[in-house]
Amino acid sequence: MLHIVNKSATDRGSLESCLAMATKGSAVLLIEDAVYAATTGGAAAAKIQAAAADLKIYALGPDLAARGMAARVLDGVNVVDYAGFVDLVAEHKSCQSWL
């Protein structure tokens, strides 16, 4: 299953809720303001790196770039473009947007 998170982890609890309910082996894609969680030095960095042990973590490159964060991506986070986003949706049987 693909989980999509779009809100900053320092603003809302959706990333935390998502990580609590994402089963082992599922994928989490961070888009829009959620991409800040995938960057170094941020409040959610430790949470994301711990989660990367059991989950595949992706972040949307155009959203990182638009926020000046393209060069600060955490190790273990896979950066994808929109084509990669589409592929992730196609590859997983279902998806859930944590609005």
Binding site: N6, I31, E32, D33, P62, Y82, A83, F85, V86, V89, A90
Partner: peptide
Amino acid sequence: HQASDSAYLFARTALEKGY
């Protein structure tokens, strides 16, 4: 909100890829 921009880019990309 960015939602409608994200949706548009997703839809256009999917269509361009042949989905």
